[in-house]
Design a protein around this nucleic acid. Structure first.
Length: 700
DNA sequence: CCAAGCTCA
């Protein structure tokens, strides 16, 4: 610890923090900022008046760093030094240095908006710009005004955007702490390669033949590319002349690799053997591989983005940012001076790459974020003007407001409702929290809890599919239930209840091709959600899973009905005479049911007239993923609500001063009078008319 | 008839 660079800056840091409410610390890898800043301020007495909080974007980091700090201070983890992550709070009365996930601090701020227990809040790894860190940055800006006398905020960031963060906090001081990295020499391709797969193959072999020992880390974009490159590398290495160079092992590394294969990168290679690690960006920050001396950087990354105008997600291969490129290069200089080969021209690096990755807040659906901010009841708060470091587009915020309105979380003036307040308590996306609340009314809370928990873990349930596991799809494999035809939500419910009946048997998961870790996570989430619901209802709810009781169609019906309320913003109507759907949102999209769905067709081969979907994902085509059949009478009230929607009122009521788009004008609630005048007993024609008006409006 | 980067309350 004594030889960490940051220790030499101790006095300077203390002095700057004492004089300023906010300080930005630029600390490169190996500077010791994550473990030392908290200890420095602890030594200076900042823990006498409160706790020092250090936020982290990842669970493993919170746990391992706090363990390290406890060790350095010679105390037991969980006493003076502790951590708080989901499902696990290892802090006590004695705790004065607390490492926590940014999302946990946001939860705490719900019940204690001034965060009075903390004397210092350190936002670590802020340059990663996680959604939650960005919200915290905005909240800190307000908080330091309210608590000017007794709160210090430190933000750690990367060289490239330190200035920007400083400007955001009224030009607060920036301190630079050097890292302990070895120099890394950078090489560029003359041109952008036609195929970065071929280019990385060639570069890798060149290194292997010409360069001294040291492992090679290759950054690719996804599982497919990784598998292809691993195969080609193996072929090429084998075809090299025996004895012409050292041996080689080639290891893939990505998130959907089973854990036992992931950890192979941590065991040292046999002597006189070079390792090639072909990885996704998991090796950029989450996992650190020792022994790497050479990095090959394709310059690309796969990123998920949300389009607020269509409500659709897509997963695109995009260019990395300069911060990311530097981070990747740095992976070569951890143990020795290293070399980084960028498979793109230097001009691309200097002129084309963005300074920093587009922050998550500009790539996500913001319904949950907006609901959270509304529930904080910040004074004189216009959600569209919340002070973000990088504000999301007004289109994205308006999309969030519309979604929240449709599921009754906010009223027509944009004020949070009591339903919305309860929803904000639940660690779920708004559509699922709304479903839980509705299910409670219909007596199917237990089932809804299961569905919500299963959907929270859905991606980790099924093992990573590759060519070899291709046959094992969820609907044509094994004896797993099929949702009784109603769709994927019901299937998820049935799967969990079967597992529940085996007393959470691990072997049952394996037999049915479900990831054990994923299922255990579902169980934890379900338990947590049950507890929160109990707390809200003061313990009077029945959240038990059904024991050896066949679910009746009536239970499924109630559950589907609850889903139609929770997913009011994610409904679709089947088009006439074929199985394509049109979403019933503000801008209808033509979409298909994802082929992995278990939703069943009727005798005539037709899918249900109305469905809810968990998400829209645009891959080869736009698809609805996780689909459940609902009934027309449940959909109609939602269509009527859609008609009444007035975005100008929703977004703070400043009304005329806000620019009004075409769509806004047509949704002014004039037509509703006509609707009220219709004969009440003629329901069918009333519904039909509502539908036609709705669809006609779409056409414009 | 499809495809999945990584986190996290």
């Amino acid at each position: 610890m004594a030889n960490l660079p940051i220790i030499q800056f101790e006095e300077k840091i203390v002095e700057t923090v004492e004089k300023n409410p906010v300080v930005v610390i630029i600390g490169e890898t190996g500077s010791g900022k994550s473990t030392q800043l908290s200890q420095i301020l602890h030594r200076k007495g900042y823990t006498r008046s409160g706790i020092i909080a250090v936020t982290q974007p990842r669970r493993v980091a919170a746990v391992s760093i706090s363990r390290r700090v406890a060790q350095e201070l010679g105390v037991r983890l969980g006493e003076e030094v502790g951590y708080a992550i989901r499902f696990e709070d290892r802090t006590s009365e004695k705790t004065c240095i607390k490492y926590l996930i940014d999302g946990v601090l946001l939860r705490e701020s719900l019940s204690n908006p001034e965060l009075n227990q903390y004397s210092v809040i350190i936002l670590d790894e802020a340059h990663e710009r996680s959604l939650n860190t960005d919200i915290l940055l905005g909240l800190m800006k307000r908080l330091i005004k309210m608590r000017a006398s007794n709160l210090k905020v430190l933000i750690t960031s990367a060289t490239l955007d330190g200035e920007k963060v400083s400007r955001f906090f009224s030009n607060c001081p920036i301190l630079n702490v050097p890292g302990k990295l070895f120099p890394v020499e950078i090489f560029y391709n003359m041109e952008r390669p036609k195929s970065y797969l071929e280019s990385s193959l060639k570069t890798a072999i060149d290194i292997h033949v010409r360069e001294p020992e040291g492992d090679v880390l290759i950054f690719m974009t996804g599982q497919d590319d990784i598998e292809k490159l691993v195969k080609k590398l193996e072929e090429r290495v084998q075809s090299l002349e025996e004895g012409s160079c050292m041996d080689a092992v080639i290891l893939p590394l990505h998130g959907s690799l089973p854990p036992e294969l992931q950890v192979r990168v941590f065991s040292p290679p046999p002597p006189n053997c070079r390792r090639f690690i072909v990885a996704t960006n998991i090796a950029e920050t989450s996992l650190t591989v020792d022994g790497v001396v050479y990095v090959i950087d394709s310059g690309y990354v796969k990123q998920r983005q949300y389009n607020p105008s269509t409500g659709m997600y897509s997963l695109d291969v995009v260019q990395i940012s300069r911060v990311q490129a530097d981070q990747r290069a740095g992976r070569a200089g951890r143990t020795l001076p290293g070399k980084c080969y960028r498979l793109y021209p230097s001009m691309v690096y200097h002129e084309e790459l963005l300074d920093a990755t587009v922050p998550e807040i500009q790539r996500s659906s913001l319904a949950g974020t907006v609901l959270y901010l509304k529930s904080l009841d910040l004074p004189d708060m216009d959600i569209l003007k919340f002070d973000f470091l990088d504000p999301p587009s007004s289109e994205s915020l308006e999309d969030a407001l519309k979604q929240l309105y449709l599921i009754d979380a906010i009223d027509e003036n944009g004020s949070i409702s009591s339903i919305g307040r309860t929803m904000a308590e639940l660690p779920l996306e708004p559509s699922l929290s709304r479903t839980l609340m509705e299910a409670n009314e219909y007596g199917c809370l237990s089932q809804a809890l299961t569905v919500a928990a299963m959907l929270s873990a859905e991606t980790t349930l099924l093992p990573g599919r590759s060519k070899s596991t291709e046959k094992k799809r969820k609907h044509d494999s094994s004896d797993l239930p099929n949702g009784s035809g109603w769709g994927d939500h019901i299937q998820l419910l049935q799967i969990y209840e079967l597992w529940d009946q085996t007393d959470y048997d691990v072997d049952w998961c394996k037999d049915n091709n479900l990831q054990v870790r994923g299922m255990k996570f579902v169980r934890d989430v379900r338990k947590q959600l049950s507890q929160i619901m109990q707390k809200i209802a003061k313990g009077s709810l029945d959240v038990r899973t059904n024991e050896r009781r066949k679910e009746s169609q009536e239970d499924y019906r109630n559950l589907r009905k609850s889903l139609s309320v929770g997913y009011a913003n994610q409904l679709a109507e089947r088009m006439i005479r074929h199985n394509g759907y049109r979403t019933l949102g503000f801008k209808p999209q033509l979409v298909q049911v994802h082929p992995s769905s278990v939703l069943r067709t009727d005798e005539e081969g037709m899918l249900p007239n109305y469905v809810v979907y968990h998400e829209l994902i645009s891959t080869s085509r736009p698809f609805m993923r996780n689909v459940c059949a609902v009934e027309m009478p449940w959909v109609m009230p939602i269509l009527k609500k859609l008609e009444k929607l007035n975005i100008s009122k929703l977004s703070g009521g400043s009304g005329q001063s806000e620019e009004q788009t075409e769509g806004d004008k047509s949704s002014l609630p004039k037509k509703d009078d006509v609707n009220v005048a219709r004969p009440v007993d003629d329901r069918d024609s009333q519904i039909q008319a509502a539908r036609e008006r709705f669809l006609a409006r779409k056409g414009k």
